[in-house]
Simulated assay, not measured.
Amino acid sequence: MPRFDNQTVLVTGGTGGQGTSHVRAFHAEGANVVIGGLDAERGAALADELGPRAHFVHLDVTEESSWAAAVPAAERAFGSLDVLVNNAGVQNPPAPIEHTDRATWSRILDVNLTGTFLGIRAAIPALRRAGGGSIVNIASIMAMGGTAHYAPYVAGKWAVRGLTRTAALELGRDRIRVNTIHPGVIATPFIHEPAAGATAAIADFYSPEPFAVPRLGEPTDVTRLLLFLTSSEASFITGSEYVVDGGLLLGPALPAEAA
């Protein structure tokens, strides 16, 4: 039997590279999928393609009113909400701290941190009504160290780690598990296309050659872990962090001729 039969999953940023991968995989595993996002055309097209077990909701993760509409919409469409994937995120154009303006700082934290906070808060009552469930926050390996010129993004993703652990402590007795995934350099438009106001993409600064697994990640690399963490197979896992980076954080591997 598919792992998510009779369960409803809400994925924010559900029309992006990673988000679409997550939505398709949950759907293939039997879930009702709620595609949350700002791109109504792409979201509606994806929902139409997947059929009656898919539903698009307009969701600006920075707006409380948007969350207040999206979660009830999921329950009306499918009867419950069982899984929340806080996947929506934006990147700042690279700049040193002294040249990072307040508006950029606020925008990045509004989406990546406050949006995650608002999502957790909005989903809690619905997850309780369902008898428990799972929340996974998609962070970044940039939350594991410092990265020059990306202060807003790094700060927000570091904060998501603390938010996740706190939520896990508060919600565990309600049978709601909360975990974090930290993707590395994943081959999506998010890292191949420059952020607004930037001239270079994140991928321009990373060569996979030194990685222990010498390739860029694929969205499915993250999705497979996400499916496990939100399934009953991970029922004893909460407040944990999982890195999907091909060994980038380990440091450079020996070249093949030196091994």
Rank of each mutant, 00 (worst) to 15 (best):
T238C: 00
R173H: 12
L216D: 06
A200N: 06
L254M: 14
W158N: 01
H99S: 14
I141Y: 04
V33S: 09
W105Y: 12
I141F: 07
V213F: 13
G132E: 01
T15K: 06
V185E: 14
R128Y: 02
L38Y: 06
V85F: 03
F56P: 02
A167L: 03
R53A: 15
A198D: 13
T15E: 12
I191E: 12
L127T: 04
L229N: 00
V85Q: 02
E233C: 03
R215M: 04
E209K: 13
V178T: 00
V222D: 00
H55N: 09
P93S: 08
R76P: 04
R173F: 07
P94Y: 07
P72Y: 03
P183A: 07
S232F: 04
A253S: 15
G239W: 01
W105S: 06
G247N: 10
G115P: 05
H55G: 10
P125L: 05
T116Q: 07
A69C: 04
Q91Y: 14
A258I: 08
I191C: 12
V23D: 05
T223M: 03
A212V: 13
P252E: 11
T238Q: 02
A103N: 11
I202H: 15
V34M: 08
E29R: 07
P52Q: 01
L216R: 08
P219F: 01
A159M: 00
H99L: 14
A123Q: 04
T180E: 15
L216Y: 13
A28D: 12
V136E: 02
A25D: 11
V111K: 01
G30C: 12
E233F: 00
V178G: 00
W158T: 01
A203I: 10
R107I: 13
Q18V: 13
D204K: 10
Q18K: 05
L226C: 08
H182D: 00
N137L: 12
F56D: 05
I120G: 06
L226M: 13
I141M: 11
S66D: 12
A256F: 05
F26E: 02
H27F: 15
G239M: 04
G239Q: 04
G37V: 04
I186A: 08
A123E: 04
A256P: 11
L249R: 06
T12K: 11
P255E: 10
P72D: 01
P255M: 14
T220K: 12
T12A: 05
T116C: 15
A139L: 10
D48I: 13
A201N: 13
G247L: 12
G16N: 06
N137C: 14
R102I: 14
V23Q: 06
Y206T: 10
N92P: 00
R177K: 14
A45C: 09
N32L: 08
V213C: 08
G79L: 09
R128I: 11
P52H: 05
A77S: 14
R215S: 05
P210S: 10
I181C: 03
F78H: 07
M1E: 14
L81N: 01
V243C: 00
E63T: 08
T199N: 13
P208Q: 03
V243A: 01
H27M: 13
G217H: 03
L229P: 00
R121G: 04
S231H: 01
T100R: 09
R121T: 02
D221K: 04
G184M: 09
I191H: 14
P208M: 02
R53C: 14
V61R: 09
H149P: 00
L118S: 02
P214R: 00
G115Y: 07
A69M: 09
